[in-house]
Design a protein around this nucleic acid. Structure first.
Lengths: 211, 211
DNA sequence: AAACGTTTCAAACAAACGTTTGATTATGAA
DNA sequence: TTCATAATCAAACGTTTGTTTGAAACGTTT
């Protein structure tokens, strides 16, 4: 029983790193066992299949992450009383915890944030399914707050802007490292708080745009 | 000599469709030849390799597309004289031609737009290389116009916002079909002009946000 | 028609993939 | 110790992947 958790979380950790950097479909089980230094059959023994492994990798961080998002939102709503929570606060609750993951190397760090962004943008239907279930649940909870903070915004326009928001957020999570190249080293993706603040103010202005 | 172009463009067309819907790496050559109804060896005879095939698929549409973007921008700059081109116009020149591709089914249509968005977000380094070369070239040309339209915006902030812009644009190009589901059928991704207009006004407001 | 280069085709290639097997070793309870 | 369960391991499974081969069919030119 002593080595079970070691092997299991060892696989999860290695899979998280590799899934995040090359994408789940481009990562082979043999690369994972090479990094985790376990036997190939251990993956199927502990997780059943590659798909279930990805599911486990996602669930390990995503469930607490979404709980944190909802808790933050409820906190802001309590403070706001019967009034609307200001849009920047709502956005902060939505994108902040996700982006801030990279600040906490112990809890998955940058690796998982990249993986999450990558999965959101992944064409593969199985991965889509895993993500959409979680995302719909969060969006359903955030939608009333967003609509409240954005009065006079037609529902159709609202969904379009959520779509743009998801794109900007996912791309930022998945591949901000690219920004270092594009900017010629001027931008530093490691400055997470700066990143959150910049993204929130960008989204805040975009969502409030006059249509 | 008569059938050469038929086979060659037949492969390009089939590859474009399949690459766009499942992603290049998730598409096998055998799926392509099945759709194009040609022999497997024809791909290597005409293109040399799978990677070169993707390169050819991209180049066929991307070169004229980027030319159109630059032509539009120069047109606006001519009209503006020595003054700055208004930001919405600059954005229109940047994202309009790409999104509008879906209006022209003869010239590749929605299929290529999806592929392009997908390639921008693709982790694979070889694909990144193909995209970055083209994108850098365009961005270098658009940067002065964007900076001119956005005075008082610090260079660091500028690059961050370009990054958000790319994310929103690529996600919109790659997978607006998803919006139909999320919105419960309320939003119609086939309304390309509406899509362009909404994205431009969203990006316009986001780029102008007070930092 | 004969000879030419170009294009198609069925068949096979080695490599890599996710998954399964059956034997072997470690662990905790009786 | 003895036994049963849990975990690890090397080896092989059948597919699928991108790529290569050599011969057949085609179109053009002489």
């Amino acid at each position: 029983m002593k080595t079970r958790k070691d092997t299991k979380t060892g696989i999860l950790d290695a899979a998280e790193v590799l899934f995040a950097s090359r994408g789940p479909n481009a990562t082979s089980l043999r690369q994972i066992i090479g990094k985790a230094k376990v036997n190939l059959a251990a993956i199927h023994y502990h997780f059943g299949s590659k798909e279930s492994l990805l599911e486990a990798v996602l669930a390990r961080r995503l469930v607490p992450l979404n709980a944190e998002r909802l808790a933050l939102l409820e906190d802001y709503e309590l403070t706001a009383g019967k009034g609307a929570v200001p849009l920047p606060k709502v956005l902060e609750a939505l994108v902040g915890p996700a982006l801030r993951l990279s600040r906490d190397p112990g809890k998955g760090g940058e690796r998982f944030m990249r993986l999450l962004g990558r999965c959101v943008l992944e064409p593969d239907e199985k991965i889509q399914g895993l993500i959409n279930t979680q995302f719909h649940y969060v969006l359903e909870r955030f939608r009333p707050a967003l609509l409240k903070a954005l009065p006079n915004l037609p529902p159709e326009e609202f969904f379009w802007r959520i779509h743009f928001l998801v794109g900007a957020m996912a791309h930022t999570m998945a591949d901000s490292e690219r920004l270092r190249d594009i900017s010629g080293g001027l931008c530093n993706p490691d400055d997470t708080e700066g990143m959150v603040q910049r993204l929130v103010s960008f989204l805040n202005a975009g969502l409030k745009a006059k249509s």
